[in-house]
Amino acid sequence: MSTMIPDTGNTPQKDNSTATAARPNKGGLEGIVAATTAISKVDGTAGRLIYRGYDIHDLARTCTYEEVAHLLWFGHLPTQKELSDLHTKFVAERNLPDLVVQTIRELPKTAEPMDVLRTAVSAWGAISVSGKPTIEQAIAATARFPLILATFHRLRQGKEPLESRSELGHAANYLYLLTGELPKEEHVRGLNTYLVLLADHGMNASTFTARIVASTESDIASALVAALGALKGPLHGGAPSKVQDMLHEIGSVEKAEAWIREAITHGGRLMGFGHRVYKTTDPRAEELREMARVADPEDFKLSSYVETKALALLDEMKPGRKLYTNVEYYSAALMKAVGLSGDLFTPTFAVSRCAGWTAHILEQVNNNRLIRPEAEYTGPQNESFVPLAERK
């Protein structure tokens, strides 16, 4: 996400003619309440993110991704037995049907991992998913997202996919499947924190898309494929690798100020700054900043300096804009530190967000009404019809 980027937001189906006249349409559904949810709350003014009542800082510092997935799906943090049961269910779903693996094999090695993930989820849905979305399907999808990405990553390197290890948690197993090596504890901790922080984020564009599809009584795989399509866009989730590209272009602390001034002066984008919702510091960025510092102290020096200098220059050159570092800025540094290539950054966002998407899909179908908003027509009216032969 950059300084020029929006983020967004079931729609009560009422006669909104009076409300529309009273409230100007800013576009992008900004300021429009499109659903009620008990899953998460984003308080952009205070800079808070809450999952079912729990502050994101507490969850990120103490919980595994599996605990947070349980919280999002079932509404409460798990007991030890509930967590063990969920782990057992995850392990049972850590496999890909032969047809899905074959589909991945037949895709070009140069394909974007997000495209591979979208295609493989669609293939999995075609042979494995039917009927109303269920919690069992949510667990199955969330367990398989990392397998799809790791399978493609291994194949494009000329290697064969690996079998999951049942003793490993969600984050550790993903790293193992990518590399074939047991990951370092600090890398597991860093990736787990990332997965917790991005597991849900209110009515963002991809979550809204998933809920729209679910509201039509379509299946869970279709809703997830639609969400992936929305997440791929650079105005939503497709920007983390671009932060890394920006830092690489800046190159050093000595060149940072001149590069940033040039970018701001000529309308260039500072990737990883600004957010559609947060009017203060993104709480997820606060947690990721520390994780990035620990994961790679040397790379962190440049990231930290560019952040400090960019915020100062934005305040100087764009006064009143209140632009802050967003989640994608330090996501890039952290994911690079744990060994992920740039084109896996956004797909790994999807690995995390799958728990949130499926929680929202289940919430939608359990109290469903077709999402069907209105559009304010701005075209011509009362045109006189002219028969084809008389048109000039």
Rank of each mutant, 00 (worst) to 15 (best):
S222N: 06
L195H: 01
A171N: 14
P161W: 01
E163L: 11
K184W: 02
N192H: 08
A227S: 04
G202F: 08
M203K: 11
R165W: 05
S164C: 02
G190H: 05
Y174Q: 09
I220D: 05
T216I: 14
V196D: 10
L168T: 00
S166Y: 04
Y174E: 05
S222Q: 13
A221Q: 01
E163C: 10
A205V: 14
G180M: 00
Y174P: 15
L195A: 01
L162P: 15
G202A: 09
S206H: 02
D219A: 06
H187C: 08
T193M: 15
T179S: 15
A210I: 07
G190E: 09
F208G: 05
T179F: 00
E167R: 13
S164M: 04
L177I: 00
L178R: 10
S206G: 03
H201M: 13
N192D: 15
H187F: 03
V188R: 08
L177K: 07
R189C: 13
I212F: 08
G169Q: 12
A205R: 10
L195Y: 00
M203V: 05
D200N: 13
S206K: 04
E217V: 11
S206T: 03
A199Y: 03
A172D: 14
L191Q: 07
R211V: 01
T179I: 00
G180C: 00
N173Q: 13
A214H: 03
T207H: 13
S218M: 06
L191G: 01
Y176F: 13
L177H: 02
A172K: 10
V213F: 02
N173W: 03
N192M: 13
K184E: 11
A226N: 05
T207C: 14
T209S: 08
A172I: 02
L177R: 06
V188N: 04
A226D: 09
S206F: 03
R165K: 14
L168Q: 05
L182G: 10
L228N: 04
E186R: 15
D219P: 03
